[in-house]
């Protein structure tokens, strides 16, 4: 079967189709998650960040293109016992919640949520919730 040129070309084309379709479906899945999170971030902006941004706009700002839903990198600007707000490089705020199961590390040390403070550079891995927030599973603090 593989000696035939036609059979080889058919196999190559089929393989390419599989790769293209798989890539497309991964892209659709990732895009859907980002779009859903961006929508929920905007819908819950007032509740999470306490009203319009410092720019004085009457409505919540448009999320930049589409936001990553499973983590963020930035500096902490505000912190409470159960959550904190991270501002990323693009200037967008993101609410991150943590629980007793969240692992927080700085260099080799394990930290507690009470060790986090405003101004810390953090990287968060987590999952989005229905209120446009990220539930942190792991936080790496860069000090």
């Amino acid at each position: 079967m593989f000696q035939s040129k036609t059979a080889r070309w058919v196999l190559i084309i089929l393989g390419l189709c599989v790769v293209v379709l798989l890539s497309f479906s991964v892209g659709v899945s990732v895009g859907y998650r980002k779009a859903t999170f961006s929508y929920k971030w905007r819908e819950n902006y007032d509740r999470n960040f306490g009203g319009p941004s410092f720019r004085g706009a009457a409505f919540p700002p448009e999320p930049p293109f589409m936001m990553s839903a499973h983590g963020t990198v930035g500096s902490i600007v505000q912190i409470t016992p159960s959550d904190f707000i991270v501002v990323g490089r693009d200037g967008t705020e993101r609410m991150v919640t943590f629980s007793s199961s969240t692992t927080i590390r700085s260099n080799e040390d394990m930290l507690h949520s009470s060790d986090l403070k405003a101004g810390d550079q953090v990287l968060v891995i987590g999952a989005p919730d229905d209120e446009g927030r990220i539930g942190a599973r792991f936080i790496r603090v860069f000090r």
Partner: peptide, 27 residues
């Protein structure tokens, strides 16, 4: 930054492989 976690916290990446993978794909 996300990829740097593979070197600094490989066990955290393995434990949260799904969220980490999605973060890499999203960014």
């Amino acid at each position: 930054r996300a990829l740097s976690l593979v070197f600094s916290d490989p066990e955290a990446v393995l434990m949260n492989w799904r969220d980490f993978g999605l973060l890499v794909l999203e960014s």
